[in-house]
Structures are given as structure tokens and as C-alpha cells.
Computed example of a mutant assay.
Amino acid sequence: MSEVETVSGKPLWLKVWQFPLVAMAVALALMVATLAGTQQLFTVLPEIENAALDMIVRTVVGVGLVFVVYKLFVTRLGARKKDDLPARGSITDTLLGLLVGAAIFTAVVGVAAIVGAYRILGWGSTQDLLQIVLLTGVVAGFVEEVIIRGIVFRWLEEFGGSLLALAISAALFGFLHIQNDNATVWSSVAIALEAGILLGGAYMLTRNLWLAIGIHAGWNVTQGFVWGVPVSGNPFMGMVESGLYGPDWLSGGAFGLEASVIALVIATGAGIWMVWQARKEGHWISSMWSRK
């Protein structure tokens, strides 16, 4: 075999196939195909008469397919095979994440209430509970973390290091919400900073997805159901009926408290702490050209 056909003892085609950005592109294509296929499957599957059961079944099928494709294919891509959804720690890290996400957003609501930006107006209802838990908790928490942290962050970090991965994945995550109801450029920037850094930090700290999945789900369910705040611009009926008051920079306006400076300070601060802890524990990765 000629020198042109080999690189560092490996065939050139294998070297290209295992290159981080190529592996990332293949993994993203697999996930897009999985999500598109799931949507097509749902159009042909008969609806279950019980609406709640139908929603549960579709959630289990959709999330299950993403899980299976990730386990069977994504974990085998790239030069460094890695499974970010290990069985070990899946329950404890997810439960811890749920508590952390709930605590952070409760702190946001508490500060907003103190400064007069949030008020409880009365009791709400449980009519949206299942939708909030399944769509904003299970689906958003699991699928978005697999794609943004488990694919984008992972291979950007292997290519360009932790800082590049954190910056790009956070920006991508924030601006994926630009099409949401009541979204603005500012709300997307806010989510990029507060949630992008927080969830990226959780992934860096544990080197798996379970903590980030738990934080994501706990954050969404707590703000939507417990405190009755719009979830990334999407209004739901929560346990309480609430109102947001004051200038948009303080209350988040129609988008919700995620677009407030309160969430920006509290959640970003928590995220920076996680990144700092990850770096202290030796989980900071330099770019591939620096490693060479």
C-alpha cells in the first residue's frame, strides 16, 4: 500500500471515516433519519382512543427508537468508541439531575417573586401534567441531550477541545429555540448562555448524559407544571396560575423567565461552576492539534 493510501498506519478511508467531524455528521444524519422515520411511523399507526395512553405510547416509541439507534450505531462511530448512556449511574445521575434542575428553576422563581416579577394568582389544574412531563420532560430532555451533548458536543470536543465544543453547542442549543412561540433573539441568547453552559457543564462533569438529561427535564417540568411559567415560550396550565410583571429583561416577557436576567445569572453561574469543577477533575480536553 502506498504512502498516499495510508495515514499513521491506517488506511486513508478509515482515517477519514473516523475523523471527529465526519463521525458527528454521520451521527446527526442517523438521528435526523430516526426522527423523520418516527414521524412517518406515527402517521400510519392508529391512534389509541384514550388520548393519555396514546401520548404515552408515542413517547415511549419515539424515545425508544432514538435510544436504540444511539446504542447500536452512534456508540460505534469515530476513532474513540464511547457510550454516553451507560447503565451504571443512569438512575442516580438522572434523579440528581431532576433535583438540580428543579432547584435551579425554583431559585429563579423565588428571586423573581422577591423583586415583583412573578406572582401566583391562584390555583391552576393538572390538565397539562402529562403533556408537560412527556413532551418537555422526557422527549425534550432525552432527545435534545442525545443530539446536542451526546453528538455535537462530544465530537466537537474531540476535534477542537472543550471550549470550542461548549461555545458552539450552547449557541446551537439556544438558537434551536428561535422558532418557539414568543421567541426573540435575546431569548435564544439567554438559553444559549444559561442552559447551554449548564447542560454542557453537566456532561463534562460526569462524562455521560444522564445528569444533563435529568437537569433538562427537571428544569422544564418544574417551570411548566409546578410554577406555571411558559416553557421556552410555550404556555402550559400548571398547578398554579401565575403572572409575570415588569420589564421583559427582568420577567422574560411572553417567553417566560428563561429570557430573564434572573435565570441568566443563576443558571449561568451554576453552569460555570460545573465547568470549573469538570476542569479541576481533569475533564477539560484540548484540541486535537494541540494534543498532537
Rank of each mutant, 00 (worst) to 15 (best):
K71G: 04
F73K: 03
G62V: 07
D93P: 01
G101W: 04
I91E: 14
G62D: 06
F73W: 14
G97V: 00
R88C: 00
G101I: 01
S90V: 01
G62P: 06
L85S: 07
G101R: 06
R88F: 12
R76G: 12
M55V: 09
V57P: 09
V100Y: 11
G97K: 00
T106N: 08
G101S: 03
A107W: 06
F73C: 04
G101C: 08
A79G: 12
D83A: 09
R58K: 15
D54W: 04
V100S: 01
Y70T: 09
A102M: 02
A112F: 09
T92E: 13
Y70R: 02
F105P: 08
D83Y: 11
F105D: 11
L95T: 12
L53K: 04
G78E: 01
V68L: 13
L77F: 08
D83Q: 10
V63M: 02
V108H: 03
D83E: 13
D93M: 07
F67C: 00
I56D: 05
A79E: 15
L98M: 09
G101N: 06
A87W: 14
L77T: 04
G97N: 01
F67Q: 10
T94A: 08
A107R: 04
L99C: 11
V68Q: 09
V63T: 06
G64P: 11
G89A: 02
V109S: 08
T59Y: 10
L65I: 14
L95K: 01
V63E: 11
L95G: 00
L65K: 04
A51K: 12
V74F: 12
V61W: 05
V60T: 12
G89W: 02
P86W: 03
G110H: 06
A103S: 14
S90I: 00
I114S: 05
S90R: 15
A107K: 10
P86H: 06
N50W: 13
I56M: 14
V63D: 10
P86E: 10
V74R: 04
I56K: 07
D54Q: 03
T92K: 03
K82E: 15
V61P: 10
L65A: 13
S90N: 10
V108Y: 05
A52P: 09
G110L: 07
G110M: 03
A112R: 00
I114R: 01
Y118A: 00
Y118F: 13
V109D: 08
D83I: 00
V108S: 11
R80Y: 12
V115M: 04
G97A: 03
A117V: 10
P86V: 01
L85W: 01
L65Q: 07
V109C: 05
L96P: 00
F67T: 09
T59N: 03
V60D: 11
V68I: 14
T94H: 02
M55L: 14
T106P: 12
V68S: 06
L96R: 00
D84C: 07
A79L: 08
F73G: 02
K81S: 11
F73N: 06
D84R: 05
A113C: 01
G110R: 02
D84L: 13
I56F: 15
T59H: 05
N50P: 11
G78Q: 00
K81A: 03
